[in-house]
Design a protein around this nucleic acid. Structure first.
Length: 594
RNA sequence: GGGGACGUAGCUCAAUUGGUUAGAGUACCGGACUGUCGAUCCGGUGGUUGCGGGUUCGAGUCCCGUCGUCCUCGCCA
């Protein structure tokens, strides 16, 4: 037996006990006649004491220990002498008096120290991920992730869900994100696609009668990365039959409550997670995943703007656009002209607009700023009233299309909230965003595109608009939002083939194309499809938010860089010409190009 | 595909806005020390300033290109 205890469990009550520990050397403090080793494993740190009584050979061996050496130590648990208890660690009231040291493996000098608070460059962490994962912060996050998935599995098991695996090698469907493709050897020129989600399979499972399906599923999207987006990511994916929107929402609300309780030992802020329509979210926050931890809501000024001489405001207002503003309460003094230049640069670079219009409220309650002269006093008064402007407030405006005002003001709202520290970092603010539009108009391709996927059911009362007013149709779609991040999204699916055909038609999918892409699902739908719907939660993002992190790479054991490479393994890498030949692929490698 | 930030010792950073021999902490190596706990003290090794060009009497610093990491717009049904 290598070890009898871990490095995290010994306490005063174990004194006198003879134990064997294994772990990594965290530090070695040599005092000539006595030396202290901090021994680390994922359970904690235990101090081991060596005295010269152990014998010269063993003492010299202990002396030679360096960070990350792997050792086995047998000794006796002793309480620490009075006054030298280490309160920083749970095992700090005891130490192990070493009687035998075995070096299991030496470590090279590590490229960075795992036991110090300074976090090395991410590039280095990813290259030596095995060392990075030894850092307590990373271990804590991966344990949190395990805890979350464990609670999820228990919860759905209790609710009679069946966990079923779906294929990773599937069929490419051109709608949606770009697919990762895998060439077929036995059918040269043909490709599998890695799943963007198990969407079609889980619908098939409903038709097959597994009325409650769940899976913690790996999904793949070949799109550019972000702090909260990886090319492969994990979803808690589920589907239910004989249910309506409220059933899914209740089921997930129950899970959220359970996660809060069992993972964070906290209650939900509100007994019932609040719901907001997509339209309301866009109107009040300019985004479909609003961060509700702070106010600064978007206020509409279009009616006022229609009447002003200032053309920057009046033109969009008169031409179907919108003029809206936000009020950063009391922030006027904190934003100098230089700071505002930075904001201008931010919106120009990110949203393709010239800049942001702004006004400050002076001590007398008057609106001041370079654009103030373009308004009559009563117009300024109206604007001030609408925005509830008080002395010291900082007002920012966007006058453009509705979509652009949404993007600009959402961006500014979030940025200002962060800069002004309006957000309580401990808050966990959930909400449901409901009734997303069915379709988006793709101006470039001159056609409607599905906002979710083409199997999403419209609201029953909106089915009538399928032939007349497609832009008005709202879907039976719902997103779960946490602290301004979309952490889940789902829909009720269409199970009426007439409605399904109509939707395909609107999306510009001919019967033939639809058959070619989803024929198996269309077939299956003919053989007794129950009403069904489901949802998928982004596990990586949930872990990130539950762990108070700001990117999902730190929540994934082996993540990829923004160029989608794995710095540890070197993936993606070149392959031998023989492998390509077998696949019937004639791509040239980099080496051949040079 | 576009925009931005960064790249200096193994690691974390500094280097007077172009000026002598590129420094500090830490790690590492050697020494001292019998109660430390991010031990301390003394000494030492360690640099193609990511890479390639250019401007200049002189480049870590300026310019161009390139590679990499991060942030972001597009993209992500």
């Amino acid at each position: 037996m290598y070890r009898t205890v871990t490095c995290g469990e010994l306490r005063v009550e174990h004194q006198g006990k003879n134990v064997t520990l294994c772990g990594w050397v965290d530090s070695n403090r040599d005092h000539s006649g006595v030396l202290f080793i901090n021994l680390r494993d994922r359970y904690g740190i235990t101090q081991v004491v060596f005295s010269t009584k152990i014998g010269t050979e063993q003492f010299e061996l202990a002396r030679s220990l360096r960070a990350e050496d792997v050792v086995q130590i047998t000794g006796t648990v002793e309480p620490r002498p009075d006054g030298i208890v280490n309160k920083k660690i749970p095992t700090g009231e005891i130490e192990v008096k070493a009687e035998k040291l075995t070096i299991l493996n030496r470590s090279e000098v590590p490229p960075f120290q795992t036991g110090v608070p300074e976090v090395p460059a991410e590039e280095l962490r990813l290259k030596h991920r095995y060392l990075d994962l030894r850092r307590p912060a990373m271990q804590k996050t991966l344990l949190l992730r395990h805890r979350i998935t464990k609670v999820m599995r228990d919860y759905f098991d209790e609710h009679r869900f069946v966990e079923i695996e779906t294929p990773v090698l599937g069929k490419s469907t051109p709608e949606g994100a770009r697919d990762y493709l895998v060439p077929s050897r036995v059918a040269p020129g043909s490709f599998y696609a890695l799943p963007q989600s198990p969407q079609l399979y889980k619908q098939i499972l409903m038709i097959a009668g597994y009325d409650r399906y769940v899976q913690i599923a790996r999904c793949f999207r070949d799109e550019d990365l972000r702090a909260d987006r990886q090319p492969e990511f994990t979803q808690l994916d589920l589907e239910m039959s004989f249910i309506e929107m409220d059933d899914i929402i209740e089921m997930i609300s129950g899970l959220v409550k359970r996660l809060m309780k069992e993972v964070l030992d906290r209650e939900l802020k509100e007994e019932i997670i609040p719901r907001m329509s997509y339209d309301e979210a866009m109107e009040r926050f300019g985004h479909d995943a609003p961060d509700l931890r702070f106010g600064m809501e978007l206020i509409d000024l279009t009616e006022i703007a229609k009447g002003v001489e200032f053309r920057v405001f009046s033109e969009p207002a008169k031409n179907g656009g919108r003029v809206r503003g936000i009020n950063a309460k009391g922030a006027a003094e904190k934003y100098s002209r230089k700071d505002i230049d930075v904001l201008n640069q931010y919106v120009a670079e990110n949203f393709g607009v010239k800049g942001v219009a702004w006004l400050k409220v002076d001590a007398d309650g008057h609106l001041a700023g370079p654009i103030a002269k373009n308004f009559k006093p009563e117009e300024l008064e109206q604007i001030a009233q609408k925005l509830d402007a008080k002395p010291g407030d900082f007002l920012l405006f966007s006058a453009d299309t509705f979509a652009t005002t949404c993007r600009v003001l959402n961006g500014l709202r979030r940025r200002l909230a962060a800069e002004l520290k309006l957000i309580d970092p401990n808050e966990m603010n959930f909400c449901w965003i409901m009734h997303f539009p069915m379709f988006d108009w793709d101006a470039e391709e001159q056609r409607w595109v599905a906002m979710h996927h083409p199997f999403t059911a419209p609201l029953d009362e909106h089915v009538q608009y399928l032939d007349s007013d497609q832009g008005k149709i709202r879907a039976q779609a719902y997103d779960l939002v946490l602290n301004g991040f979309e952490v889940g999204g789902g829909t009720i699916r269409i199970h009426d083939s007439k409605v399904q055909s109509k939707v395909f038609e609107l999306l510009g999918l001919s019967q033939e194309t639809a058959r070619e892409m989803f024929g198996f699902l269309l077939d299956a739908l003919q053989f007794g499809a129950p009403p069904h719907g489901g949802i998928a939660l982004g596990l990586d993002r949930l872990v990130m938010l539950f762990g108070g992190q700001d990117n999902i790479r730190d929540c994934i054991a082996f993540p990829k860089t923004t160029k989608a490479s794995d710095l540890m393994t070197g993936a993606p890498g070149e392959v031998a010409k023989k492998q390509l030949d077998e696949l019937g692929i004639t791509a040239t490698t980099k080496k051949e190009n040079k």
